[in-house]
Computed example of a mutant assay.
Amino acid sequence: MPVYTVHAPSPGGADLRATDKFVFVRDGFHFWAMVLGPFWLLWHRLWLALIGWIVFLGAFDAGLHSIGIGRSSIFFANVIVALLMGLEASSLRRWTLSRGKWRQLDIVVADNRDTAERRFFERWSQKQHGIVNDQWAVDRGGPPPTRGVPGEQFSNPPPIPAGGIIGLFPEPGGSR
């Protein structure tokens, strides 16, 4: 089953108004990136990757030709480079997104892109609803809330022991 990474355009966090700009990048082999490498890079607007691919392939072919490798061997070497392009196309796309200050939000496993979007947005909207409209949230960093109800045992916090130490620690200055 394919794995998709989800990227958002804002570096500070995902915004509900920008959900139409989220990008789902499928991990795995991309056939069209292997067959039509530079056109695939142009289609996905991967300009630096395209320049790097052109420079690398030109230098690679010139280097092989200068050491006397035959045309058929250079062709097979280019096929291997094209295969590597198909394998690493999604990594190049994620790299370009990270350079553009995009943030990876999640990883989704789904059969196709539509299912991945549905699964991601179901999970993400539940998280957003919990963050924005959670009236029952409790701050776990502070002490439990106390109520000023006279006569109830929970209305005041428990008293601190005489030595000022709570737990299994020894008394200050005592023997070990």
Rank of each mutant, 00 (worst) to 15 (best):
M1T: 09
Y4L: 08
T5G: 10
V6I: 15
V6R: 05
H7T: 07
A8C: 03
P9D: 07
G12H: 05
G13V: 01
G13Q: 00
A14S: 01
A14Q: 00
A14V: 02
L16S: 07
T19H: 02
T19R: 01
D20M: 08
D20Q: 12
D20F: 09
K21P: 03
R26Q: 15
D27K: 13
D27T: 07
D27A: 12
H30N: 09
H30A: 05
F31I: 14
W32P: 06
A33M: 07
A33Q: 06
M34D: 11
M34R: 10
V35T: 14
V35S: 05
V35M: 11
G37K: 00
G37L: 08
P38S: 14
W40K: 04
L41S: 03
L41Q: 01
L41H: 00
L42V: 04
W43M: 11
H44Y: 14
W47L: 14
L48T: 13
A49L: 02
L50H: 00
I51D: 01
I51T: 12
W53A: 11
W53N: 05
I54H: 11
V55M: 06
V55E: 08
V55N: 02
V55Q: 03
F56Y: 12
F60K: 07
F60P: 04
G63P: 05
G63T: 08
L64K: 08
L64Q: 08
H65P: 00
S66K: 14
I67M: 12
G70H: 03
G70N: 09
G70R: 00
R71I: 13
S73P: 07
S73D: 15
A77W: 05
N78G: 10
V79C: 13
I80H: 04
V81C: 08
M85A: 15
M85S: 15
M85G: 13
G86W: 02
E88G: 11
E88R: 04
S91T: 14
S91Y: 12
S91F: 12
S91K: 14
L92R: 04
L92F: 04
W95Q: 09
T96L: 04
G100A: 15
W102E: 09
L105E: 02
V109Q: 10
V109F: 11
A110W: 06
D111C: 03
D111G: 13
R113E: 15
R113P: 01
T115N: 07
E117P: 05
R118H: 09
R119A: 02
E122K: 03
R123Q: 09
S125T: 14
S125G: 00
K127Y: 02
I131K: 03
N133S: 11
D134A: 10
Q135I: 14
W136P: 10
W136S: 13
W136Y: 13
D139Q: 02
D139A: 05
R140I: 13
G141D: 13
G142C: 12
P143Q: 06
P143W: 08
P144C: 08
T146P: 07
G151D: 07
E152R: 15
N156E: 14
P158Q: 09
P158T: 01
P161E: 00
A162M: 07
G164F: 03
G164I: 02
I165Q: 11
I166R: 12
G167M: 07
G167N: 00
F169C: 12
G173A: 06
S175N: 08
S175K: 00
R176S: 09
R176W: 07
